[in-house]
Design a protein around this nucleic acid. Structure first.
Lengths: 239, 239
DNA sequence: GGGCAATTATTGTCAGACAAACCGACATTA
DNA sequence: TAATGTCGGTTTGTCTGACAATAATTGCCC
């Protein structure tokens, strides 16, 4: 057995501070909404300078573990989907993921969302979704339609009450839709088909028909591919 | 119409610096591996103090956009899956997602991964996967088995070549498996069923039978649920 | 040309300072 | 009473300047 030379990392003060606070948050000793002491106090708690504390805080801030509603309120943040979404989208942009990759995954997430939504929707949510659908039907202009389309899908995902699904699909659909803007003009009667599919999904969710909702959602995303194919963008990189 | 009070954010110097560098990276003006100037130089470029630059850099560092192989090398980082996985897992932990949520999503991601893997596997990847399977069959001890099981699934995901899928499923399966450790002891003959399912998935992938691979993967994850149900943990929170 | 030591440059951290802004409390007004 | 204006103490964002440790680079020697 040879000696294992694990890369030992020097822990700089600012990192230790960030880690310390991080573990306290993850262990639940600090709960979302809890207020943290001021920088000077933190500094003397940890026995370092304010500058050092600040560097640590900046990390935690970027991590989304703490946030400042106002400069002098520093509190433990609640887990926020949007920050993670941004990060994932960025990673995907840098990886230059293809339309096909996005579509293939959306092809399983969106039907699942519809299926689950059909199982545990509430009346209120149904009304909201219905209202969204109406707005979408009346929408003029591609950009507006795409934005509403995305909201429609997100609303369904929210109805699924599945946090994991919500978290996972958000960056994906966001990228897919934003990429779709470049494709939409090439798909002439996409709008009609879209309205039809949305209507069907909505009806099946309302009726509590999980399988119907799933199948229509799948069909809807399949349509999506047709439009992308038509524009010859399947292999291309979005954004 | 009521007055819209959009939260206007003051842009502090350190944030502007972070944003500026971020956009240059995302726009491709700075590519992964590119080296950035030292802190003093950056400071005078932006017309601020070194402390201010540092705070901005700490953010970018936490964002995973830049990294320091050694303290004095500051370079643009490549998008790294693992950092994102950590963040997602953390968010899921804080949200106290349920086993059911994780399982429901895995129920669609894992079959998809198997399906795609069957379509574009290479001989070399097949050999690796087969080796992994052998190791898993010989493994003793629950912890080791679970670790290898997870590796088996990850390997299949990698074979799918779908970056989006890889990115999305990683945190999910990671949490699912790590939660599974608490369940495994309660499922006596899980090991045999698991070996069987893995073998079948492997065979179908090798044969290029996408549908077969997908179906067996689905069955495999379904088994998973049985074990969790048995332990009465479906509603509970993992971790 | 390659390996080693000496020099230089850069980092992590510190101490202290200042203006701006925020927060909370208080006084004022309707 | 409730809303609005005022004021002082805090705390932040940023700055200046400094120092030890150490990585990077240079020059030297073989």
């Amino acid at each position: 057995m040879t000696l294992q030379g694990r890369q030992l990392k020097v822990n700089y003060a600012y990192l230790q501070i960030a880690e310390e606070i991080e573990t306290q948050i993850l262990d639940g000793k600090l709960k979302p909404g809890d207020r943290l002491p001021g920088e000077v106090e933190l500094a003397q708690m940890f026995g370092v300078t304010r500058s050092t504390v600040r560097e640590g805080l900046r990390q935690l801030e970027a991590d989304g573990l703490v946030h400042r509603p106002t400069p002098r309120r520093l509190e433990v943040a609640e887990p926020q989907t949007d920050k993670l979404t941004t990060r994932s989208s960025r990673a995907m942009t840098m990886m230059k993921v293809s339309f096909r990759d996005l579509w293939q995954v959306a092809m399983v997430t969106e039907p699942l969302a519809a299926e689950l939504a059909a199982q545990c929707r509430t009346e209120e949510e149904l009304d909201d979704l219905s209202a969204l659908h109406d707005r979408l039907c009346r929408a003029r202009g591609i950009a507006e339609m795409i934005e509403l389309d995305m909201q429609f899908h997100s609303a369904i995902a929210e109805m699924s009450k599945n946090q994991v699904l919500i978290l996972a699909r958000d960056p994906i659909t966001r990228m897919l839709f934003s990429g779709f803007q470049r494709v939409a003009p090439a798909a002439p009667n996409a709008a009609r088909r879209q309205a039809e599919a949305h209507g069907a999904v909505l009806d099946h969710i309302a009726a509590g028909d999980a399988e119907g909702a799933r199948d229509w959602a799948r069909r809807h995303i399949e349509d999506f591919r047709r439009a992308i194919d038509l524009a010859g963008l399947m292999e291309d990189t979005p954004f």
